[in-house]
């Protein structure tokens, strides 16, 4: 059993939040993404301005071109060699997602605790699958775009743990994997904070202030923490994560599959009759994830 006295757990939590505020090793939000966000929210911005921004990052240019020609976006259409054409084909929404997926996955490096590839594969699959879940529920288009970002970043707290307290978290994981208790519950019991809350706090402090996305990340294991209006995206990410986990697309950290909240399923209005279609959508999301990781 790893449990600490309540006083120590509280201290641990305070210490982590303090470290979170100061720690210089935690990556900053990439400038390019910051600039892209400005353009995304600027009704005047045109695709030309976006091409120009992307062209400042040659690695991103290469991957945008490859993706525009990949099975995911370009199948059957003529090959594109110019960035401008690729930008046109993909459109701003898709470009934004691609830029986030590539930009964020470069931020945290592999370490002995986390398998970088498995971690991003899981996060990317949850992002893509969270979007396709919208086919089975009725929500706004805005939430659909946000579910990609929420999915992509939902487990970032694991990276934060591994960066802030690598040795302690490593020792914790060895014991945690032996127990059939969800990892986030064990984190809360041991550190006074779980990766969902730590990740949400990290993003709020250092990256951006989209309250809906941040709330969804904080709630991704228990989507009933915030007020009713702020729960929907959390429930979508919760289900996307639980279902991806369930079919074996895990983050490389957990051994036990993430528990599934019946309330999230009921409140989003999913139907069991759609189960096979939902499972097909997960497989499709996984296939698209592999395409995105390959380029």
């Amino acid at each position: 059993m790893q449990s600490n006295p309540p006083g120590e757990v509280r201290e641990m939590r305070d210490r982590l939040l303090e470290q979170l505020a100061q720690h210089p090793e935690l990556p900053e939000f990439p400038q390019l993404l910051g600039r892209l966000e400005e353009l995304y929210h600027d009704p005047e911005a045109d695709l030309g301005a976006i091409s120009e921004l992307i062209s400042t990052d040659p690695v991103l240019v290469g991957r945008v071109l490859k993706l525009a020609n990949s099975a995911l976006y370009g199948s059957g259409r003529k090959d594109i060699v110019e960035l401008r054409e690729a930008v046109q084909r993909l459109g701003l929404n898709e470009l934004r997602k691609i830029a986030y997926s590539i930009g964020l996955s470069e931020l945290f490096q592999s370490n002995s605790l986390l398998d970088h590839r498995a971690f991003w594969r899981h996060n990317l699959a949850v992002a893509l699958f969270a979007q396709s879940l919208h086919r089975f529920i009725s929500t706004s288009r805005d939430l659909r775009e946000r579910s990609y970002l929420g999915g992509l970043m939902h487990d970032v707290g694991l990276m934060v743990f591994a960066t802030l307290i690598p040795e302690e978290y490593g020792r914790f994981l060895v014991l945690a994997r032996e127990r059939e208790i969800p990892l986030h519950d064990q984190e809360a019991e041991y550190f006074g904070i779980d990766h969902a809350e730590l990740g949400a706090e990290f993003i709020r402090m250092h990256w951006f202030e989209d309250a809906t996305v941040i709330s969804a990340i904080r709630q991704h294991h228990f989507p009933f923490l915030d007020g009713v209006e702020e729960r929907e995206l959390g429930q979508i990410i919760h289900l996307a994560n639980a279902i991806c986990d369930n079919v074996g697309i895990q983050n490389g950290v957990d051994v036990m599959k993430a528990p599934f909240e019946e309330g999230a399923w009921i409140r989003l209005g999913l139907h069991l009759e759609d189960a096979n279609k939902i499972l097909a959508a997960v497989n499709q999301a996984l296939e698209n994830t592999e395409t995105m990781l390959e380029v």
Binding site: N246, V247, F260, L272
Partner: peptide, 14 residues
């Protein structure tokens, strides 16, 4: 329903 969904998926952890 969430239990049944897992039954339909037919996947189990260690």
């Amino acid at each position: 329903q969430s239990a049944l969904f897992q039954a339909i998926a037919g996947r189990y952890d260690v």
